[in-house]
C-alpha cells in the first residue's frame, strides 16, 4: 500500500519542481541572450537600453520561479490519457504534411483527430476531412481573397 503513495508523492514533488526549474532555465537562457543585444550610445538610447526592460522582466520571472520552488504547493495531476499524446503526435505530423499541401495536411489531420477520438462513421469522417476543409478554403479564397501556399491540391485551384 505504501508503494503507490510514495510514487504519488514523488510525482507530486516532481510536478512542483519541474515547472519553476524549466522557467528558471528559460529565464537563464533569455538573460544570456539579452547580454548579446546591441547597446546604443547614450545620446540615442531614449531613456533605457534595449536590454534593460527584458532584463527587468526576466528578473521578476526568476524571482517568482524561486518563490514557486520554495513555497509552491505539491499536487499530482492525473497522468495524461494516451489519446492526448496521440493528438499531440497529430499536431506534430501536421507541419510535415504541410510541405506537400496545407489543405491536404488539414484534411488528413482533422480526419486523424476525429478517428483517434473514436469517430468511426464514414460520413462524419468525410465531413471533417474533406467537406469542411473545402468549404473553409473556398470561403477564405473567394470570400476574403486570402491566397494560401501552393501545394499539391491548391495548385489544382490556382492553376
Amino acid at each position: 500500500m505504501t508503494e503507490p503513495s510514495a510514487e504519488s508523492a514523488g510525482r507530486a514533488r516532481l510536478n512542483r519542481l519541474l515547472p519553476p526549474l524549466a522557467i528558471l532555465a528559460i529565464a537563464g537562457i533569455a538573460y544570456h541572450l539579452t547580454t548579446t543585444f546591441d547597446r546604443v550610445p547614450p545620446i540615442l538610447k531614449r531613456g533605457i537600453q534595449p536590454s534593460d526592460f527584458p532584463q527587468l522582466v526576466i528578473g521578476l520571472i526568476a524571482a517568482l520561479s524561486i518563490w514557486l520552488l520554495i513555497r509552491g504547493r505539491e499536487s499530482a495531476p492525473r497522468p495524461l490519457p494516451s489519446v492526448v499524446w496521440v493528438t499531440m503526435a497529430v499536431l506534430l505530423v501536421f507541419p510535415i504534411l504541410t510541405a506537400v499541401d496545407l489543405f491536404l495536411a488539414l484534411g488528413v489531420s482533422a480526419g486523424a483527430l476525429a478517428a483517434c477520438w473514436g469517430e468511426r462513421r464514414i460520413p462524419a469522417l468525410l465531413l471533417v476531412s474533406v467537406l469542411i476543409p473545402v468549404v473553409v478554403f473556398l470561403l477564405f479564397d473567394l470570400g476574403f481573397e486570402i491566397r494560401f501556399p501552393r501545394g499539391l491540391l491548391t495548385n489544382l485551384w490556382y492553376g
Binding site: L106, L113, L127, V136
Partner: peptide, 21 residues
C-alpha cells in the same frame, strides 16, 4: 466532440494563417 474539435482545429490553423498570410 469528434466532429466539433477537428473543425475548431481547421479554423484555428486557417485563422492563424489568414491574418498575415
Amino acid at each position: 466532440v469528434t466532429i466539433l474539435w477537428p473543425v475548431v482545429f481547421i479554423c484555428s490553423i486557417v485563422g492563424a494563417y489568414a491574418l498575415d498570410q
